[in-house]
Simulated assay, not measured.
Amino acid sequence: MKMFAQATDTQLINVFQNGDINALEVLVYRYKDKIYSSILFLVKDKYLAEDLFQEVFIKIIDTLRGNRYNEEGKFLPWALRIAHNLCVDYFRKIKRTHFVASDERDVFELIGSVGDAADTKMVQSQSHEKIRRMLDLLPEEQREVIVLRHFAGMSFKEIADVTNSSINTSLGRMRYGLINLRRMMAEKQIAL
């Protein structure tokens, strides 16, 4: 495993396609948090997110084994696009237009906390909960762009690819999403 630590995504994919499963394990470990947290934020159900996460990597494995991967150097955006599409397919399948919020687990717990003091963690947890609730009030397109940008660390070009929109549309959605968040904070006098 250590020998693959410095390998690029493309190198890992090539090694996996040549039969070394350890290379895939490194890829999974490298991106699991970003992919899982993006899925969880969209579906808001821990168990469903785990199922969809597994489906994402099943699709990735099938594509890699079939030598159909052609997104050279863009593994994470490609994997996030698969995750996004599986979430959309799931919601189409159950014919719902809104997201189900059956799990109260704070999505921001997945990002990790800084600071060791209990009071710091409590304040941080309360701030994350406020942000999550405000994000839930945003239109889906704005919320999605903010999540992909700030929690998955994607560029606007990658976001545009994942959401099948233009870069300008993604930028606009981000701008309006942030404006709406600021307006909500001002209206509710929320300080983070």
Rank of each mutant, 00 (worst) to 15 (best):
M1E: 05
K2T: 01
K2I: 02
Q6M: 06
T8F: 08
T8S: 15
D9I: 10
D9F: 05
Q11W: 01
L12R: 08
N14K: 13
V15E: 14
V15D: 04
V15A: 05
F16K: 01
F16C: 00
F16T: 01
F16S: 00
Q17Y: 06
D20M: 11
D20P: 11
I21W: 05
A23V: 08
E25T: 13
E25C: 08
V26R: 14
L27E: 08
V28Y: 15
K32M: 02
K34A: 11
K34H: 03
Y36W: 09
S37H: 12
F41D: 11
L42K: 13
V43P: 05
K44V: 11
K46C: 09
E50G: 09
L52M: 14
V56F: 06
I58L: 13
I60S: 11
D62F: 02
R65K: 12
R65Q: 07
N67V: 06
R68M: 00
R68H: 07
Y69T: 10
E71G: 02
K74N: 14
F75Q: 04
L76R: 12
W78K: 12
R81G: 09
R81T: 12
H84E: 10
L86K: 14
C87G: 12
V88K: 14
Y90L: 13
Y90G: 07
K93I: 07
R96Y: 09
H98V: 13
F99M: 12
R105L: 09
D106H: 09
V107K: 08
G112D: 01
D116V: 11
A117D: 12
D119E: 14
T120C: 08
T120N: 07
K121N: 08
M122H: 10
V123D: 08
S125A: 15
Q126L: 15
S127W: 03
R132Y: 04
M134E: 05
P139S: 01
P139V: 04
Q142G: 03
Q142D: 07
R149E: 00
H150A: 02
A152H: 02
A152Q: 06
A152S: 09
G153S: 06
M154G: 03
S155D: 04
K157E: 10
K157S: 05
K157D: 08
E158R: 01
E158K: 04
A160Y: 06
A160N: 05
D161R: 06
D161F: 10
S165I: 11
T169V: 12
S170P: 04
R173H: 03
R173L: 00
R175W: 02
R175N: 01
Y176N: 07
G177T: 05
L178Q: 04
I179T: 06
I179G: 00
I179L: 07
N180V: 02
L181H: 03
R182P: 00
R182H: 01
A186T: 13
A186H: 09
E187F: 04
K188I: 04
Q189N: 15
I190Q: 01
L192M: 12
L192C: 06
